[in-house]
Design a binder for these strands. Structure first.
Lengths: 348, 348
DNA sequence: CTGAAAGCGCTAACAC
DNA sequence: GTGTTAGCGCTTTCAG
């Protein structure tokens, strides 16, 4: 592989000049610039990023550590993050933790080794050592998919608990009182915990209890969700709130398969608003999350902080309920009995 | 950030010794090893990957350039590729081309700059300059999602054309003669082209023509697929072969919505066998592709070649038709007329 | 405007 | 066994 010296020799200049041309810094005669450029083209010279990173003490890379790519919502966010990074000239390094806790701290260290300029993490639930290392190494980082006031690191995401308020309000206004939850696995996952917490809190606000037996934890997969659905159905619920759309899709598919009429017999609500959710029949009522924007914002915030030598700023994104075809009036409500008017209390 | 010199000083040894301890090469007294290790822990020393790469002339990274992450099949393959890379100690660099042709050659150069030890590409349809650069830089690479004898670079994937043979045979054996195709966009996409080519060839083998009007190109999205579905339906087909499962899911959803009975009125076949396809009702008949294995194999082959200083070996993976609920007898076939017996010709 | 030279942090001979 | 030293390819003062 040709190196800068080769280009310099061929162009009859010093390596310093070649460097100036490549990085468009300092001033170089147009004539020299062209000579260098020709040499670069002729040799198909490609600069050596590691050498550059070593001299510059900046790698020009952004990293991300995510739980999995096998969930469309993460894939979408990462897709956008990568694109934004690329547009601003940064290379993207990805690590998938595959939900394995031990991997995580290890992966953060790998990212520090690689000298990433900025790092995206998912959620706020990370071991303290993770933040210590990151701070010590002065690697800017941002926790996404969550927005908590008390978080140790900057957050770019939404309030998972609050997002559930309108979900609960919606169901309650339709007369539902017996509500079940098909939640994501809570361990090491603050998003899943916060969502359940938000549901409990808001039901409580409406004077409705949520017995533990009506909360079932399930992995984010269609198959697991279909199986878990049965555990809940036994508990005589008229509506199910799901930890995300994959779970909701599983529940919907299973409900339809067992011959239930949706939303006649049962209401179902998801979270994420995946492309598919709008296309199913009936289309899924769910909470819309703009993962693409979150990815773009995270990349932008990280890069801004790096280039302006400032701190990463938190940003709260919003979510909103998209009412579609899987939620309807609770059939156990007598049509003549007064339905609760939420107008005076439902606003947050 | 502490560097090797700091560790060396604190442990009272030379940097060479520190290096030996870290890389577990050469021999070091157990006592010294421990002293160095303590120093590393005390300082929370993290080696500098760029400096290492520069000295070693190997980066310890693997790269991948893919069209998008917003298609579960790529996400799955990349997820597996990353995992395999990580398990063998390699860092993963990802670039998404977002289907933009110009980006592509540029991205390959970025990968070379980063000094990736191995690179995964999707399909064989890349500009010659891409291969030239890669060969010149001696970066091992592999083209996935395809297996073509004549390909310039090593392939780890399946034969897209051949995969369609059993699809066609299946439909023909069910009596279908009026077949439509909802194909992926052919431009810059050899996989999409090969699939259509395989269909045409096999139909031809059965003496069935496929008029151009019955081939509709469509982007890989549910929404586009639903729209395109109408163009095909006008052409009076009894079965539709889709470029992938996303397209097939869109077609299925739209068909059900318009009140068609599936497979009674229309048969539909997909490609990829996404998790969802098995869960829909009726479940989708489709071609199973093991993207996870493909990702693992690609990473393994790349790393083997790098570490053994050999060439990357091609591997052909197989696909197979999974017959589920969206394909059935062609209703236009008179039940009494002799159905064609394929037993003697259907084997490839 | 351009060149010379030092140094980024690490590894690999080669001495000792 | 362990230390010394010379780069790996690039950028960046500092002279000129």
């Amino acid at each position: 592989m040709p190196k800068q010296t080769d280009v310099a020799k061929l162009a009859g200049v010093s390596t310093a000049t070649v460097s100036r041309v490549i990085n468009a810094r300092g001033v170089v005669t147009e004539e020299v610039r062209q000579r260098v450029q020709s040499a670069i083209d002729a040799l198909q010279y490609v600069p050596h990023a590691s050498a550059r990173a070593l001299a510059l003490q900046r790698s020009g890379t952004l990293g991300a550590i995510i739980p999995t790519l096998n969930n469309a919502i993460f894939a979408e966010g990462i897709n956008a993050f990568e694109r934004a990074a690329q547009l601003r000239g940064y290379t993207f390094i990805l690590a998938v933790s595959h939900e394995e806790r031990e991997q995580h701290a290890e992966q953060v260290i790998r990212m520090i080794e690689r000298g990433v300029d900025g790092l995206l993490l998912v959620g706020n639930d990370h071991e303290p050592v993770v933040f210590e290392r990151l701070e010590k190494a002065a690697v800017r980082h941002v926790c996404t998919w969550a927005f908590d006031e008390g978080a140790r690191a900057p957050n770019i995401g939404f309030d998972n608990a609050n997002a559930m308020h309108e979900v609960v309000d919606h169901l309650v206004s339709l007369g539902h009182r017996d509500i079940g939850v098909l939640a994501g696995i809570a361990a090491h996952n603050d998003r899943a915990r916060e969502r359940v917490h938000g549901i409990v809190k808001r039901l409580n606000y409406h004077g409705i209890a949520l017995p533990a037996s009506r909360i079932v934890e399930v992995a984010y997969s269609l198959r697991d969700s279909r199986r878990a659905f049965w555990q809940l159905i036994d508990h005589d619920v008229s509506a199910i709130i799901c930890g995300n759309d994959v779970i909701a899709q599983g529940a919907l598919l299973e409900a339809l398969k067992m011959g239930l009429s949706i939303p006649g017999d049962l209401s179902i609500i998801g979270f994420d608003d995946l492309e598919l959710s709008a296309e199913l029949y009936p289309a899924l009522t769910t909470v819309h999350v703009n993962a693409q924007r979150m990815g773009e914002r995270a990349a932008g915030a990280l890069i801004d902080a790096v280039e302006n030598k400032t701190h990463v700023l938190s940003q709260q994104l919003d979510t909103h309920l998209v009412v579609r075809g899987t939620t309807g009036l609770c059939k156990e409500i007598d049509a003549n009995s007064p339905t609760i008017d939420l107008a005076d209390r439902a606003t947050v």
